[in-house]
Design a protein around this nucleic acid. Structure first.
Lengths: 135, 135
DNA sequence: CTGGATCCCAATAGATACTG
DNA sequence: CAGTATCTATTGGGATCCAG
């Protein structure tokens, strides 16, 4: 156990990334914040994959502790919280784009948007800059 | 359940990728084959992270079924098997490189090789081409 | 010997019911 | 609405067994 709360299995950077994202839900939360414009707990809870509420709460807390997500109060409605990505979270956009391209290429049933994939292949840097700017 | 044995939680390509790689071990096996030059079961078993033998056997079987890994007999020693990546496996190199860069940037205790990370930032395409060629 | 398969059991993840 | 509690299912570590 280290100061940031991650149990490192080795000093390999890929291993560290898997200690953070190596489960079936964490990166889906990041996806919803990074690419789907979701901001509130209920929006995140209504994912297509049907994330359970305890899992969502756990992952949001963990991502917040890791400095990947920030939680704020809604300026108008004090009950609501707004979730967003930090710079460290936005830096995951390359990983998300790579995963989309890989799945589009190798999943026989891929439903990845063709225009997005084509742009990712042709002008990856431009796409990433645009996605980052949209936040 | 689909023909390829993956249970899709949705038709999202990121979700599909996580259905395949969303655990703490699968991508470590890919890493050892893609970047560490490991080829045999015993070499893979001796990872820094201490993968258990049942987990390694399970992940190799799964990756083979998914067309990401190929298993052959050793030409000289019939007892040994040689594992390697298919093209679909090599196409994960971008993901691995992105994860290394992300960890190098955001892990306060990162031990990522500085020269590798610098090259990934400066000439990502060149690095990927070279890594692919080395296999 | 290498490359697994199997089993037991502990630990963790996750679905569902419930609460402030 | 935004979580917590509880209960169950799955994963994984470690030992052992087995086949070529």
């Amino acid at each position: 156990m280290t100061p940031d709360g991650i149990e490192r299995r080795s000093d390999c950077p890929i291993s560290f990334a898997l200690d953070v994202f190596g489960d079936r839900w964490t990166l889906l939360v990041v996806r919803d914040l990074a690419l789907k414009g979701k901001r509130t707990y209920s929006e995140l809870l209504a994912s297509d994959e049907g994330i359970a509420t305890n899992i969502l709460a756990d992952r949001l807390k963990r991502l917040e502790e890791l400095g990947i997500v920030v939680k704020r109060r809604h300026p108008d409605d004090g009950r609501q919280r707004l979730y967003g990505l930090t710079d460290a979270g936005l830096d995951l956009l390359p990983v998300l784009v790579d995963l989309i391209v890989w799945s589009a290429t190798h999943d026989p049933q891929s439903a990845a948007p063709a225009a997005f994939v084509e742009e990712a292949r042709r002008d990856r840097d431009g796409l990433l800059a645009r996605l980052r700017g949209e936040r």
